[in-house]
Amino acid sequence: MILLFAIIYALIISLSNSLFCLVIESLLPVIILINCPGNLKSLVKLNALNLFMIMTLALTWPNFREGVIMGLIITWRLNLIYIIFAGVIAKLGFTGIYAALVRFHVPEKLRILLLLTMRGIFIMNNRLDSALIALKLRAPEMKFMTRLKTFGYITGNILLQSESRSEKMLQAIKCRGGFEGFNQL
């Protein structure tokens, strides 16, 4: 329910063009931000990235002043939507989001894919990190083409490793009763 409300609220913010509406719609995000001040840090990072977007819009818009205003409105909307979703994600946690996906009738295959991808990221991250550290130690400086070629080879190697790992994982899942277990989450 809370996720559905957040989506509808974010959609309303996303489609608002007038400043008056945006001010009214800011009330809820401000309350969320007061209750979760931890989000402020990531908001600063988000807006630092957004400065580039405002500058691009200002320089490419037919009128410089209008471009800046448009950039600021988009930034405002972006901040409000970010606060809403960050609040919801913090409130629900991963299991809550998964339960919401079940209630939204998201296909089982997609849900399993999401869970296994998250698990896969943790598994493969260690392998990729080791490969990158080894590369740094063996060749700290490389020409551009060599660097790109090495990146390609490391990626290819990680793909092969993940394929062989997936075979073992599938066998393990089958031994534990197949994909039925995922429905009990």
Partner: peptide, 18 residues
């Protein structure tokens, strides 16, 4: 194929990291 889901997941996590 349902049996390919694990392979797709691990390959997509490898792509995600790369």
């Amino acid at each position: 194929n349902p049996d390919k889901i694990v392979k797709v997941a691990l390959l997509s996590s490898a792509f995600f990291l790369a």
